[in-house]
Design a protein around this nucleic acid. Structure first.
Lengths: 174, 174
DNA sequence: AGTCTATATTTCAGCAATGGAATTTCGGCT
DNA sequence: AGCCGAAATTCCATTGCTGAAATATAGACT
């Protein structure tokens, strides 16, 4: 990986090469898919770099952010499962990590004692506040080359693509 | 995951909730990042569904496609490493899988005996030909909602985003 | 030729992230 | 009371990848 742009060039060369050997390859579609995937993983990896020194993975941070932004700073593992698309098994591990770092407390829910109430701690709130500036700066720098109009267009096109993909899905997801 | 569109709505709600609690969150950028990542993983997962019944992972298939589309149907593991962004260690494993399925042969390179020459077999070529129609159909269906103009715009915006991200990178990649 | 350094591949051991199945505890319904 | 289902956890397994060391060979320098 030299740069995203050169990666794109390599992708295009590879796809073109396939297209010359087989008719009917939708070159543009393949390239868009590959570019989207590559951008997604690369940008996510950059965000992870901010978290890594603190020993948190991206899913851990997502869970913490959900607690942070919830009305009363608390939620149950099961609720978070839905919000960050994780299985209960994994949610338990994420919770363990956050509790071990004293960013979150875990106590039994008094109303329904099957449940556990997770709550972000003051240290957790401080942690989020301390990390956001760096993440925001990285994000804004990455998007600096796009104007407001570009972003609106990109937003619109991505939503249109999502709707298009949804339309093809009649089988059971996942 | 109900649908991509509803996932997007949930993402936006979460981000908006954070934005109300902290000033300066670039909501549009965060949302774009999350949408791109989600689209990338979802679309890739759909492609993988085609491969799964055949016991191949996506990286395996990528390697096979590179061999397929190379001028003489052959390459060394090291060359493929660069083309599909994998480490040598992993490339060995991928090669093992492809050889075990008789899609590729592995023989010492006579010119440079440190090297190994991988070559796609006739069965490998047939395999690619047999799988492509299904992959192409799925891909075209997914992109059916975008017109040619949409695709050109999306391509342009993604490249612009890539260039913008590249511009922020002066530290050593990876 | 002999020696040294670099390259290509492989093996080994292991990690990170996740998932399924079974288990425990409890709520709610009959 | 008895039963079914939900929530969280534990245990074990899988997937996909990696670094370090080992092996074999090439190429350069003396």
């Amino acid at each position: 990986m030299q740069s995203l742009s050169s990666d794109f060039a390599a992708m295009q060369a590879g796809i073109d090469r396939v297209a010359t050997r087989i008719a009917g390859v939708p070159v543009a579609d393949v390239l868009l898919l590959r570019m989207i995937k590559h951008l997604g993983t690369t940008m996510t990896a950059r965000m992870e770099r901010v978290l890594q020194p603190h020993g948190l993975a991206e899913t851990d941070f997502s869970a913490l952010m959900q607690l942070f932004s919830s009305a009363d700073g608390s939620a149950s593992p099961g609720e978070l499962c839905g919000l960050i698309a994780q299985r209960p098994t994994n949610m338990t591990r994420i919770t363990d990590a956050l509790v071990r770092k004293r960013l979150v407390t875990r106590r039994p829910d008094s109303a329904d004692r099957r449940r556990v109430a997770l709550r972000i701690t003051p240290a957790g709130v401080r942690f989020v506040h301390s990390l956001l500036p760096e993440m925001i700066a990285g994000l804004e720098a990455g998007f600096a080359g796009l104007g407001a109009g570009d972003k609106r267009q990109l937003d619109r096109l991505l939503r249109r693509l999502a709707a298009s993909i949804d339309a093809t899905t009649q089988d059971t997801p996942r």
